[in-house]
Simulated assay, not measured.
Amino acid sequence: MARKSRKNKKQCMEMVQEPIHYYAGIYARLSDEDIPSQGSSIENQILIGRNFIEEHEDMDFVDSYIDNGQTGTHFARPAFLRLMEDVEAGKIHCIIVKDFSRFGRNYLKVGEYLENIFPCKKVRFISVNDNFDSNFKGKQDDLIVPLKSILHDSYAKDISKKVSTSIDVRKKSGNFMGGKPPFGYIRSQSHPHHLVVQREQAEIVKKIFCWRLQGLGVSNIAARLNDMGIPTWRKLNSKRPNQTDKGLWYGSTVTNILKNPCYLGCLVERKTEKVLYKGGVTKVIPKENWNLIEHTHEQIISGEIFYQVQRLMNQRPI
C-alpha cells in the first residue's frame, strides 16, 4: 500500500508543476455554533488573510470564499466547492485560512486534503494563526496538524452534545421544539414554544379517534375527511392558496394522528436526534426509548380513548 501511495504522489508531481507566483484565495467559515467575539468573525478571517498576502510579494489576491452558517464537519459547503472548482481551473494556487478549525473540524478529511489532495494539485495551503505553510513543512508538522484536527473534531462533538442537551431541557420545561404543531394545535401568540388547542381542528381529531373505535379503517377515515372537504394541515398552511392543492388526507396522515401522544397533552423527548458533528444527520430513536413529558399543554384525547385506539391498531391490519 505504501509503495502505491508514493507512486501516485510521483505521478501528481509529474503532471502539475510547482507555481513560482501564487494566486491566492482566502477561505473563511463561520458556523451557527461559533462565537464571533472570539476573533473568528468572517471579517476578521478575511482581514488576516489579506494582511498575510500583502506581506508576501509572491502572492496575488484573487477572491474570498465565504461559508457563513456552515458546519466544519463536512466539506459539501457552497463556497468551499466553488474554491475547489477554481483550483481545478487553475485560478487558485494557494489557499489561506485563519486556522485549521476554519478549514474543517473532521480530522480525517482535513488530513486527506493536506496530505493527498492539495499536494497532488500543487496547491499551497497556509494556516496563518497556526504558523503552518505546506511549502515549509517540518517533521513536527506531521504530528501537530493531525493533533489539532483531532481537537477540533472533539470540539464539534462536544458542541453537538451541548445543543442536544439544551433542546431536551427546553422540552422538559414544556416547550414545543418541533417545526410545525400537530393538527389540532397552534403556537401560542404570547409563547411561540407553547401549544394551544385549535378548537375546530380539535373536533376533527376527536372524530378521527371516534371513527377508528367504531371500526373504520384509516383509509376509509381519510376518504370520509376528503368527502367532507376538511382541509389538512398542509392545505391550511399553503403559501399558494389559489393554486390547485394536493394536500389530501391519506391513510398514513390519519395513522400519524392516531399514534401521536401529543393529543394526550404530552411532548415526546428524544424521538429523533440530530447529530450536528456529522453534518446534521438525523438519527431515529426507537419508540421504546422515547420519554413522555406529561401535562405540557391541553389534551384533546383522553388517555382511555387514546390507549384503546393503540390496542385496536396493534391487533390487526387496518
Rank of each mutant, 00 (worst) to 15 (best):
His297Gly: 09
His191Asp: 15
Arg199Met: 12
Arg124Lys: 13
Lys246Ser: 15
Lys148Cys: 11
Glu112Arg: 12
Thr232Ile: 00
Asp227Met: 14
Glu273His: 13
Lys122Asp: 03
Arg3Trp: 06
Thr272Val: 15
Lys137Thr: 02
Met59Trp: 03
Leu213His: 02
Gly280Asn: 08
Arg3Asp: 14
His194Leu: 02
Ser101Pro: 06
Lys180Met: 11
Phe125Ser: 14
Leu151Thr: 00
Pro36Asp: 07
Met13Thr: 04
Asp130His: 00
Gly25Asp: 03
Ser190Ile: 07
Gln38Lys: 12
Gln17Ala: 13
Ile92Lys: 02
Lys161Thr: 05
Glu18Asp: 14
Tyr250Ser: 15
Ile305Cys: 10
Met13His: 01
Val268Phe: 01
Ala28Phe: 00
Ser302His: 09
Lys180Leu: 11
Asn131Trp: 04
Met15Glu: 14
Val163Tyr: 00
Gln70Thr: 11
Arg29Ser: 00
Tyr65Gln: 09
Asn260Glu: 01
Ile96Arg: 02
Cys262Lys: 02
Leu147Arg: 07
Asn226Asp: 12
Met13Glu: 11
Leu195Glu: 01
Val110Tyr: 07
Gln308Ala: 09
Asp63Arg: 14
Ala223Ile: 04
Ile285Phe: 11
Asp60Asn: 13
Val197Ser: 10
Gly303Phe: 07
Gly69Asp: 10
Val218Ser: 15
Lys137Pro: 04
Gly138Lys: 04
Ile20Val: 13
Asp227Arg: 12
Lys235Asp: 06
Asn116Met: 04
Ile126Gly: 03
Val268Asp: 05
Asp153Cys: 11
Ile208Val: 03
Leu30Phe: 09
His295Cys: 09
Lys172Asn: 09
Asp86Trp: 01
Phe136Pro: 03
Asn51Thr: 03
Gln70Asn: 08
Glu33Lys: 08
Leu225Ile: 06
Ile48Arg: 10
Asp142Gly: 15
Lys271Phe: 02
Gly247Pro: 01
Ile95Lys: 02
Ile35Ser: 13
Ile117Asn: 01
Ile46Phe: 05
Ile42Tyr: 00
Gln11Ala: 15
Ile305Gly: 01
Gly104Thr: 04
Phe183Cys: 06
Arg29Lys: 07
Asp227Trp: 01
Lys283Phe: 06
Thr71Asp: 08
Leu216Ile: 09
Leu216Met: 15
Phe75Ile: 08
Glu33Ile: 01
Lys274Phe: 07
Gln17Val: 02
Leu258Gly: 08
Asp34Lys: 05
Met15Val: 11
Leu236Asn: 11
Asp245His: 12
Cys94Ala: 10
Asp34Val: 03
Ile221Asp: 06
His74Trp: 05
Glu112Asp: 12
Lys10Arg: 15
Ile26Asn: 00
Asp67Ser: 05
Ile92Trp: 00
Trp290Val: 07
Cys120Val: 04
Ile257Asn: 06
Leu114Cys: 06
Arg29Ala: 02
Glu14Leu: 15
Lys246Thr: 10
Ile300Lys: 05
Asn314Glu: 14
Gly39Tyr: 10
Cys94Asp: 01
Ser64Asn: 11
Gly39Asp: 08
Asn106Glu: 11
Ile42Lys: 01
Glu14Lys: 15
Leu195Asp: 00
Arg29Ile: 04
Gly251Met: 04
Gly247Glu: 10
Ser188Cys: 14
Leu108Ala: 14
Met228Ala: 14
Phe80Ala: 03
